[in-house]
Design a protein around this nucleic acid. Structure first.
Length: 361
DNA sequence: AACACGGGGCG
DNA sequence: CGCCCAGTGTT
């Protein structure tokens, strides 16, 4: 190992012990709690995930409690955190561990990797934190810290980059305290070696940081450009029967929000007006058994709901009817307005519901 | 190897 | 408006 690596881990851990945040999952080695926190924090900031972690631990103190819950409850509790496949895989894995593994989590990196929703990062985190296995985590923080200190320009989202960074990280880890080391490098990236305008002048690695020496900090890490954002046009049919009942539709296709609920949706290639809406075959299909009294556009100015790779240009159409259809289609639920809150819905829908039904109770 | 998958926060 | 966040699974 090159000489410059020699005290890297010691410096890092010393910094960590002085500056680390006190977080609930840092006060335990319970694999269930570590696993839960790691799944929640995938692509998610600590401050955003923390309240969800507390809710989940309260609702499901053990993996058995989580396993015995209906998936719909788990999704509802996850509502708003995003990347909902995490919640579905979380629940599937809880059932697997509870039912097939006697409630005991695997104790090795290799076996942890077999769990649904557990990839290289999460398996490394659990193995090191709970079982002292020296397996290096490589998350967004680690990519940033390592690329800067060692001046590595390989794109972090290329296959060769992932291999290279994992290898280097594995050489850096403190094998005597791998869990502490792994958390230290992530915390250092999150709190000090931040993406924008890090305080390099006062950094403990100032003298060995390749990026600082060559003034390339702002260029690292290198990342292959993301695809342009896609624009989509959503028309939601908010069907109101006697101002008391409505229809929710579960998303069961391939795309976003799988298994979450929304109002009946008509997606178009552009923004449409009332005449265009009611002329659509889909509109007739969605409303054929209704006795429509009126169709009114709720928001002339579309809500632009922003996801990482999509901007959803959304308008809500209020469809008043004297009754709801009798025969529900697949995934369709006839619900009273007060029951909407029981369903897991995307933030886009939650925002509309809380605004529109504010005065309904 | 590329792509899909949420939502929020920051400059 | 673009970038990033304690990444993983599918194609």
């Amino acid at each position: 190992m090159p000489k410059t690596y020699a005290f890297f881990d010691t410096l890092l851990i010393t910094w960590y012990l002085r500056h680390k945040r006190e977080l609930p999952w840092r006060a335990t080695k319970d694999p269930y709690k570590i696993w839960l926190s790691e799944i929640m924090l995938q692509q998610t900031r600590v401050v955003q995930g923390l309240p969800y972690y507390l809710k989940f631990i309260e609702a499901y103190p053990t993996v058995k409690d989580l396993a015995e819950a209906p998936e719909s409850d788990v999704l509802k509790l996850w509502q708003g955190l995003g990347y909902y496949s995490r919640a579905r895989n979380l629940h599937a894995t809880a059932k697997m561990v509870s039912n097939e593994m006697n409630g005991i989590f695997p104790k090795t990196y290799k076996n942890l990797l077999k769990l649904k929703g557990v990839g290289d990062y999460t398996a490394s985190a659990i193995a090191s934190i709970c079982f002292d296995e020296p397996e290096a985590v490589v998350d967004g923080n680690v990519y940033r810290v390592i690329s800067r200190i060692f001046g590595i320009k390989t794109p972090i989202n290329s296959t060769s980059g992932q291999k290279k960074f994992k290898e280097l990280a594995q050489n850096l880890i403190d094998k005597n305290q791998p869990g502490t080391y792994n958390q230290a490098i992530m915390e250092f990236g999150a709190q000090y070696c931040v993406p924008q305008n890090p305080d390099c002048e006062n950094c403990i690695f100032k003298n060995m940081c390749a990026a600082f020496q060559t003034e390339t900090v702002s260029n690292l890490p290198v990342k292959i450009k993301a695809k342009p954002v896609k624009r989509r046009y959503f028309n939601y049919l908010v069907i109101l029967a006697n101002n008391e009942r409505t229809i929710l539709q579960q998303r069961l296709g391939k795309g976003i929000w799988h298994k979450l609920y929304e109002f009946p949706l008509i997606e178009t290639l552009d923004e449409i007006n009332l005449n265009e809406l009611i002329a659509l075959p889909e509109f007739h299909k969605q409303t054929k058994d209704l006795n429509i009294e009126s169709v009114v556009l709720y928001n002339e100015k579309a809500v632009i709901h922003k996801l990482s790779h999509q901007h959803l240009n959304t308008r809500f159409w209020i469809v008043e009817t004297s009754h709801l259809k009798k025969q529900a289609a697949v995934g369709e639920h006839d619900v009273s307005i007060s029951e909407i809150d029981n369903y897991a819905v995307p933030v886009l829908i939650e925002n509309f519901v809380s605004e529109f039904f504010e005065n309904y109770g």
